[in-house]
Design a protein around this nucleic acid. Sequence first.
DNA 1: AAGCACAACAACCGCGGGCGC
DNA 2: TGCGCCCGCGGTTGTTGTGCT
Length: 267
Amino acid sequence: MGRAPCCSKVGLYRGPWSTKEDTLLINYIQAHGEGHWRALPKKAGLLRCGKSCRLRWLNYLRPDIKRGNITPDEDDLIIRLHSLLGNRWSLIAGRLPGRTDNEIKNYWNSHLSKRLMKNSTAGNKSQCMGGSAGKRSGNKRKQKEDSDGISGRNGEAAAKIKIYIPKAIKACPSSCTKYLSNIQSMIGSSPRNVEVVDHTMSGLKAANNGGQGWGSNNEELDGLVCDLDSSYPIPLQNDIMLDDFGEFQQLLKEDGIMDSFVDSLLA
DNA sequence: AAGCACAACAACCGCGGGCGC
DNA sequence: TGCGCCCGCGGTTGTTGTGCT
Protein backbone atom coordinates (compact mmCIF):
# COMPACT_ATOMS: atom_id res chain seq x y z
CA MET A 1 0.00 0.00 0.00
CA GLY A 2 2.16 2.79 -1.19
CA ARG A 3 1.27 6.36 -0.82
CA ALA A 4 -0.88 7.69 -3.61
CA PRO A 5 1.09 9.69 -6.16
CA CYS A 6 1.09 13.42 -5.67
CA CYS A 7 -0.88 13.84 -8.84
CA SER A 8 -2.08 11.86 -11.74
CA LYS A 9 0.86 11.36 -14.02
CA VAL A 10 -1.27 10.38 -16.95
CA GLY A 11 -0.78 12.84 -19.76
CA LEU A 12 1.69 14.98 -17.87
CA TYR A 13 5.02 16.05 -19.31
CA ARG A 14 8.22 15.09 -17.59
CA GLY A 15 11.83 15.96 -18.14
CA PRO A 16 13.35 19.27 -19.15
CA TRP A 17 11.17 22.34 -19.26
CA SER A 18 10.61 24.24 -22.48
CA THR A 19 10.82 28.02 -22.63
CA LYS A 20 7.11 28.11 -23.34
CA GLU A 21 6.36 26.21 -20.15
CA ASP A 22 8.69 28.48 -18.22
CA THR A 23 6.89 31.52 -19.57
CA LEU A 24 3.51 30.13 -18.63
CA LEU A 25 4.69 29.40 -15.12
CA ILE A 26 6.35 32.78 -14.64
CA ASN A 27 3.34 34.64 -15.95
CA TYR A 28 0.97 32.74 -13.73
CA ILE A 29 3.03 33.23 -10.57
CA GLN A 30 3.56 36.92 -11.32
CA ALA A 31 -0.17 37.29 -11.63
CA HIS A 32 -1.34 35.08 -8.78
CA GLY A 33 1.66 34.52 -6.55
CA GLU A 34 3.27 31.33 -5.29
CA GLY A 35 1.48 28.52 -3.53
CA HIS A 36 -1.36 26.13 -4.27
CA TRP A 37 1.03 24.12 -6.35
CA ARG A 38 -1.35 21.28 -6.81
CA ALA A 39 -3.91 23.42 -8.54
CA LEU A 40 -1.40 25.67 -10.26
CA PRO A 41 -0.58 23.58 -13.36
CA LYS A 42 -4.20 23.35 -14.40
CA LYS A 43 -4.84 27.04 -13.87
CA ALA A 44 -1.62 28.02 -15.61
CA GLY A 45 -2.31 25.74 -18.54
CA LEU A 46 0.64 23.49 -17.85
CA LEU A 47 0.71 19.76 -18.33
CA ARG A 48 3.01 19.30 -15.37
CA CYS A 49 2.82 17.95 -11.88
CA GLY A 50 2.44 20.60 -9.20
CA LYS A 51 5.60 19.43 -7.55
CA SER A 52 7.47 19.83 -10.77
CA CYS A 53 6.18 23.39 -11.14
CA ARG A 54 7.22 24.25 -7.62
CA LEU A 55 10.69 22.81 -8.14
CA ARG A 56 11.13 24.61 -11.43
CA TRP A 57 10.08 27.90 -9.91
CA LEU A 58 12.10 27.61 -6.72
CA ASN A 59 15.26 26.30 -8.29
CA TYR A 60 15.37 28.06 -11.61
CA LEU A 61 12.77 30.69 -12.42
CA ARG A 62 12.57 32.75 -9.25
CA PRO A 63 13.79 36.29 -10.01
CA ASP A 64 16.04 36.49 -6.96
CA ILE A 65 18.07 33.45 -7.88
CA LYS A 66 21.75 34.10 -8.26
CA ARG A 67 23.05 32.25 -11.28
CA GLY A 68 26.67 31.56 -11.92
CA ASN A 69 29.62 30.02 -10.17
CA ILE A 70 29.81 29.60 -6.44
CA THR A 71 32.30 32.14 -5.15
CA PRO A 72 35.17 31.13 -2.85
CA ASP A 73 33.40 32.87 0.01
CA GLU A 74 30.22 30.95 -0.61
CA ASP A 75 32.26 27.80 -1.01
CA ASP A 76 33.82 28.32 2.39
CA LEU A 77 30.49 29.17 3.96
CA ILE A 78 28.87 26.05 2.58
CA ILE A 79 31.61 23.89 4.03
CA ARG A 80 31.27 25.53 7.41
CA LEU A 81 27.53 25.38 7.47
CA HIS A 82 27.54 21.79 6.33
CA SER A 83 29.89 20.89 9.14
CA LEU A 84 27.40 22.44 11.53
CA LEU A 85 24.09 21.49 10.03
CA GLY A 86 24.77 18.33 8.09
CA ASN A 87 22.70 17.76 4.97
CA ARG A 88 20.13 20.37 5.90
CA TRP A 89 20.37 21.92 2.46
CA SER A 90 17.42 24.20 2.88
CA LEU A 91 18.90 25.63 6.08
CA ILE A 92 22.23 26.11 4.40
CA ALA A 93 20.57 27.72 1.41
CA GLY A 94 18.72 30.04 3.75
CA ARG A 95 22.04 31.54 4.76
CA LEU A 96 23.23 31.95 1.19
CA PRO A 97 21.06 34.59 -0.46
CA GLY A 98 20.14 33.76 -4.03
CA ARG A 99 21.22 30.14 -3.79
CA THR A 100 18.82 27.24 -3.72
CA ASP A 101 18.99 24.09 -1.68
CA ASN A 102 19.14 22.03 -4.84
CA GLU A 103 22.04 24.04 -6.18
CA ILE A 104 23.98 23.75 -2.96
CA LYS A 105 23.23 20.07 -2.68
CA ASN A 106 24.44 19.49 -6.22
CA TYR A 107 27.49 21.61 -5.63
CA TRP A 108 28.29 19.68 -2.51
CA ASN A 109 27.83 16.31 -4.14
CA SER A 110 29.79 17.13 -7.25
CA HIS A 111 32.52 19.37 -5.87
CA LEU A 112 32.94 19.67 -2.16
CA SER A 113 32.36 16.12 -1.01
CA LYS A 114 35.00 14.91 -3.43
CA ARG A 115 37.41 17.64 -2.50
CA LEU A 116 37.00 16.99 1.20
CA MET A 117 37.31 13.27 0.60
CA LYS A 118 40.62 13.93 -1.11
CA ASN A 119 41.84 16.15 1.69
CA SER A 120 40.84 13.80 4.41
CA THR A 121 43.57 11.53 5.61
CA ALA A 122 43.33 7.86 6.41
CA GLY A 123 42.76 8.77 10.05
CA ASN A 124 39.25 9.99 9.84
CA LYS A 125 37.67 6.90 8.27
CA SER A 126 34.11 7.16 9.42
CA GLN A 127 34.04 10.90 9.70
CA CYS A 128 32.53 11.41 6.29
CA MET A 129 29.93 14.14 6.51
CA GLY A 130 27.79 12.82 3.72
CA GLY A 131 24.52 11.43 4.95
CA SER A 132 24.93 12.81 8.40
CA ALA A 133 21.35 13.83 8.41
CA GLY A 134 20.35 10.60 6.80
CA LYS A 135 16.90 9.61 5.76
CA ARG A 136 14.41 10.98 8.13
CA SER A 137 13.02 7.54 8.70
CA GLY A 138 16.50 6.56 9.79
CA ASN A 139 16.56 9.43 12.20
CA LYS A 140 13.28 8.31 13.61
CA ARG A 141 14.67 4.89 14.23
CA LYS A 142 17.75 6.38 15.84
CA GLN A 143 15.60 8.59 17.95
CA LYS A 144 13.83 5.57 19.32
CA GLU A 145 17.12 3.83 19.98
CA ASP A 146 18.32 6.92 21.77
CA SER A 147 15.34 7.11 23.98
CA ASP A 148 15.52 3.39 24.71
CA GLY A 149 19.10 3.73 25.79
CA ILE A 150 18.28 6.72 27.87
CA SER A 151 15.46 5.08 29.71
CA GLY A 152 17.85 2.35 30.70
CA ARG A 153 20.02 4.90 32.34
CA ASN A 154 17.28 6.75 34.03
CA GLY A 155 17.36 4.79 37.24
CA GLU A 156 21.09 5.15 37.63
CA ALA A 157 20.94 8.90 37.83
CA ALA A 158 19.50 8.85 41.27
CA ALA A 159 21.12 11.54 43.36
CA LYS A 160 22.26 14.53 41.37
CA ILE A 161 21.71 14.53 37.69
CA LYS A 162 24.38 16.22 35.67
CA ILE A 163 23.50 17.36 32.22
CA TYR A 164 26.42 18.03 29.98
CA ILE A 165 25.84 20.61 27.35
CA PRO A 166 27.91 19.09 24.60
CA LYS A 167 30.88 20.99 23.38
CA ALA A 168 32.92 18.70 21.25
CA ILE A 169 30.23 17.73 18.87
CA LYS A 170 28.82 18.91 15.63
CA ALA A 171 25.13 18.96 15.32
CA CYS A 172 22.22 20.88 14.00
CA PRO A 173 19.74 22.87 16.05
CA SER A 174 16.94 20.42 15.32
CA SER A 175 18.99 17.56 16.69
CA CYS A 176 19.84 19.67 19.67
CA THR A 177 16.17 20.27 20.26
CA LYS A 178 15.67 16.53 20.18
CA TYR A 179 18.54 16.11 22.59
CA LEU A 180 17.17 18.65 24.99
CA SER A 181 13.65 17.31 24.87
CA ASN A 182 14.99 13.82 25.50
CA ILE A 183 16.67 15.07 28.63
CA GLN A 184 13.60 16.96 29.64
CA SER A 185 11.47 13.86 29.31
CA MET A 186 13.98 11.89 31.36
CA ILE A 187 14.12 14.23 34.27
CA GLY A 188 10.44 14.96 34.29
CA SER A 189 8.66 18.11 35.19
CA SER A 190 10.41 18.95 38.46
CA PRO A 191 14.11 19.10 37.67
CA ARG A 192 15.32 20.15 41.11
CA ASN A 193 18.20 17.69 41.20
CA VAL A 194 19.67 18.87 37.99
CA GLU A 195 23.05 20.41 37.47
CA VAL A 196 23.71 21.82 34.06
CA VAL A 197 27.37 21.45 33.19
CA ASP A 198 28.36 23.59 30.31
CA HIS A 199 31.54 23.41 28.27
CA THR A 200 32.48 19.91 29.19
CA MET A 201 35.58 18.73 27.40
CA SER A 202 34.68 15.08 27.70
CA GLY A 203 33.59 14.99 24.12
CA LEU A 204 36.89 16.45 23.11
CA LYS A 205 38.69 13.80 25.10
CA ALA A 206 36.70 11.13 23.39
CA ALA A 207 37.20 12.73 20.01
CA ASN A 208 40.93 12.75 20.43
CA ASN A 209 40.80 9.22 21.63
CA GLY A 210 40.28 7.53 18.32
CA GLY A 211 37.59 9.60 16.75
CA GLN A 212 34.77 8.27 18.87
CA GLY A 213 32.77 10.77 20.77
CA TRP A 214 29.61 11.19 22.72
CA GLY A 215 27.75 9.05 20.31
CA SER A 216 29.33 5.89 21.55
CA ASN A 217 31.41 6.75 24.58
CA ASN A 218 28.94 8.46 26.78
CA GLU A 219 29.34 5.79 29.41
CA GLU A 220 32.65 7.42 30.26
CA LEU A 221 30.87 10.30 31.84
CA ASP A 222 29.66 10.32 35.39
CA GLY A 223 26.55 12.30 34.73
CA LEU A 224 23.45 11.73 32.72
CA VAL A 225 24.22 12.14 29.10
CA CYS A 226 22.38 11.81 25.89
CA ASP A 227 23.99 11.81 22.53
CA LEU A 228 22.62 14.19 19.99
CA ASP A 229 22.72 11.74 17.21
CA SER A 230 25.59 9.37 16.79
CA SER A 231 25.51 9.91 13.06
CA TYR A 232 26.95 13.35 13.70
CA PRO A 233 30.66 12.99 13.56
CA ILE A 234 33.15 14.28 16.01
CA PRO A 235 35.76 16.39 14.28
CA LEU A 236 39.33 15.31 14.53
CA GLN A 237 41.16 18.56 14.81
CA ASN A 238 40.68 20.67 17.88
CA ASP A 239 40.96 24.01 16.18
CA ILE A 240 38.37 23.14 13.60
CA MET A 241 36.12 21.69 16.22
CA LEU A 242 36.21 24.69 18.50
CA ASP A 243 35.77 27.07 15.64
CA ASP A 244 32.81 25.15 14.33
CA PHE A 245 31.26 24.79 17.72
CA GLY A 246 31.45 28.50 18.26
CA GLU A 247 29.35 28.93 15.15
CA PHE A 248 27.07 26.15 16.29
CA GLN A 249 26.50 27.86 19.60
CA GLN A 250 25.73 31.05 17.75
CA LEU A 251 23.14 29.25 15.70
CA LEU A 252 21.57 27.86 18.84
CA LYS A 253 21.62 31.27 20.42
CA GLU A 254 19.91 32.78 17.43
CA ASP A 255 17.19 30.18 17.66
CA GLY A 256 16.99 30.54 21.43
CA ILE A 257 17.07 26.80 21.90
CA MET A 258 19.79 26.40 24.46
CA ASP A 259 18.95 29.41 26.56
CA SER A 260 15.31 28.55 26.95
CA PHE A 261 16.17 25.00 27.86
CA VAL A 262 18.68 25.93 30.53
CA ASP A 263 16.31 28.55 31.88
CA SER A 264 13.58 25.98 32.17
CA LEU A 265 15.83 23.71 34.19
CA LEU A 266 17.24 26.28 36.51
CA ALA A 267 14.12 28.32 37.09
C1' DA B 1 35.63 11.99 -36.08
C1' DA B 2 33.97 8.49 -32.97
C1' DG B 3 33.55 6.46 -28.68
C1' DC B 4 34.01 6.53 -23.95
C1' DA B 5 34.29 8.35 -19.19
C1' DC B 6 33.38 11.62 -16.13
C1' DA B 7 31.38 16.02 -14.38
C1' DA B 8 27.66 19.09 -13.71
C1' DC B 9 23.17 20.05 -12.90
C1' DA B 10 18.14 19.73 -13.69
C1' DA B 11 14.44 17.06 -12.43
C1' DC B 12 12.08 13.21 -10.13
C1' DC B 13 10.70 10.43 -6.19
C1' DG B 14 9.39 9.09 -1.64
C1' DC B 15 8.77 10.47 2.86
C1' DG B 16 7.52 13.22 6.99
C1' DG B 17 5.30 17.17 9.11
C1' DG B 18 1.69 20.55 9.41
C1' DC B 19 -2.90 21.57 9.02
C1' DG B 20 -7.77 21.41 8.23
C1' DC B 21 -11.86 18.64 8.35
C1' DT C 1 -8.64 11.52 17.41
C1' DG C 2 -7.96 9.91 12.98
C1' DC C 3 -7.59 10.76 8.21
C1' DG C 4 -6.35 12.87 4.00
C1' DC C 5 -4.31 16.67 1.51
C1' DC C 6 -0.62 19.67 0.60
C1' DC C 7 3.95 21.35 1.01
C1' DG C 8 8.74 21.07 1.65
C1' DC C 9 12.91 18.41 2.20
C1' DG C 10 16.65 15.37 1.08
C1' DG C 11 18.27 11.47 -1.68
C1' DT C 12 18.60 9.73 -6.14
C1' DT C 13 18.33 9.43 -11.07
C1' DG C 14 18.52 11.13 -15.76
C1' DT C 15 20.27 14.12 -19.18
C1' DT C 16 23.52 17.06 -21.18
C1' DG C 17 28.11 18.92 -21.67
C1' DT C 18 33.07 18.38 -21.86
C1' DG C 19 37.49 16.38 -22.11
C1' DC C 20 40.37 12.57 -23.25
C1' DT C 21 41.93 8.66 -26.02
